[in-house]
């Protein structure tokens, strides 16, 4: 199958792999923090730990990719006008991109403590 022909399959697979990672991360997160009293120091120290920092970054990027694939499908299904569709998708992609860069900055800053 060519790269182009497999784009739907790739989206399908990416949607499921990101979903699995998101759920596993949330389960671990709930296990680590559930019932704990969170303070700034413990929260910041946890995010500064390389393993948590990378896991959190992967979690955020999984969510952004998952949101892109799902949101794109929703827009394509319900927005019939091609121009409105393009505008919406561009705004959506830019929004997710900004959130990605912003999250990267947050986690890099927190990780450099």
């Amino acid at each position: 199958m060519s790269w182009r022909a497999s784009s739907g399959l790739r989206s399908w697979l990416a949607q499921r792999l990101t979903a699995l990672y998101i759920v596993v991360f949330l389960a671990v997160f709930a296990f680590v923090w559930g019932g704990q009293t969170i303070t700034f120091d413990t929260w910041r120290a946890w995010v500064a730990h390389p393993a948590a920092n990378i896991a959190l970054l992967l979690f955020i990027f999984s969510m952004l990719l998952h949101a892109w694939i799902g949101g794109r499908d929703v827009v394509i299904d319900y927005v019939k006008s091609a121009s409105a569709r393009y505008v919406l998708l561009i705004v959506f992609a830019l929004g997710l991109g900004i959130m990605g860069l912003w999250s990267l900055r947050i986690l890099l800053l927190a990780g450099m403590e």
């Binding site: 700034f40 929260w43 910041r44 995010v47 955020i60 959130m99 912003w102 999250s103 947050i106 800053l109 927190a110």
Partner: peptide
């Protein structure tokens, strides 16, 4: 949520 994450850290 990203805003809250930023603020909390």
């Amino acid at each position: 949520l990203v805003y809250l994450l930023n603020l909390s850290l």
